[in-house]
Simulated assay, not measured.
Amino acid sequence: MSSWDLGSLVYLGLLGSVLIVWMIVSNRQTLGRTLQQAMGWVLIFLAVIAVVGLWDDIRRTAMPGRAAVATEGRIEATRAPDGHFYLTLLVNDAPVNFMVDTGASAVVLSTKDARKAGIDITDLAYTGRANTANGMVRTAAVQLKRIGLGPVTDRNIRAWVHQGEMDQSLLGMSYLERWGRIEITGRTLVLER
């Protein structure tokens, strides 16, 4: 704690003490009710401080795909509290949240996200197989008309629809390798073209 912080803390302590003494002296007749109201304001004040202090964590947890900053040819994403990077891409003009997965060889859509992107999953032929941490799963190859990430749009991307239960679509290397540079530095993922 610096001397400036210590001085500020002492000042705020003295100011708070003066306000408390003034409140007690001026409200001697209704002290119980005044203390109840004061405690209510103290709790509101503490709640506001907690929300302000935790706002970045709340924002990243509630909207992990929105923690990306896009400029011309450059995307920066912040690591989510679970240790992964998430990006929201436009797939056939529909927003789809992806987990960035450098261990996945391709773009893999959950059935829910495939429907969202306008793919009719009832007509798909699940002839492919993928080896996952949960064992072998069946997949169907699809061609995505457009994938957009920030100012960058790619066309005719091959992807796979996962037939089983999948919480999150995966942004694998078949898309990531289109970027000229992929770098992970601390809590930041950088994609550049």
Results as ranks from 00 to 15, higher is better:
158 R>M: 11
61 T>G: 04
55 W>C: 04
115 R>N: 15
66 R>K: 09
133 A>F: 02
65 G>P: 03
86 Y>R: 01
177 E>D: 09
124 L>W: 08
145 K>G: 07
58 I>R: 02
93 D>E: 15
139 T>P: 00
155 R>H: 10
125 A>R: 14
126 Y>K: 01
186 G>E: 05
85 F>A: 05
83 G>Q: 03
62 A>Y: 10
132 T>F: 03
179 W>T: 06
110 S>P: 10
68 A>Q: 08
167 D>Y: 04
136 M>K: 05
164 G>Q: 02
70 A>C: 14
175 Y>D: 07
57 D>L: 08
177 E>H: 02
159 A>W: 05
55 W>T: 09
73 G>H: 14
101 D>L: 04
79 R>V: 04
81 P>A: 09
147 I>T: 06
103 G>F: 02
159 A>E: 02
64 P>V: 12
98 F>D: 01
190 V>M: 09
148 G>W: 03
156 N>S: 15
174 S>V: 10
190 V>W: 00
114 A>G: 11
53 G>S: 13
181 R>I: 08
103 G>D: 05
175 Y>N: 03
111 T>E: 15
110 S>A: 11
91 V>P: 01
162 H>E: 00
90 L>D: 15
115 R>D: 15
97 N>Y: 09
87 L>A: 04
189 L>E: 03
128 G>H: 00
163 Q>K: 08
137 V>H: 06
56 D>A: 14
179 W>I: 04
108 V>M: 02
180 G>D: 05
106 A>D: 09
98 F>N: 01
116 K>L: 15
149 L>F: 03
135 G>Y: 05
149 L>E: 06
136 M>T: 14
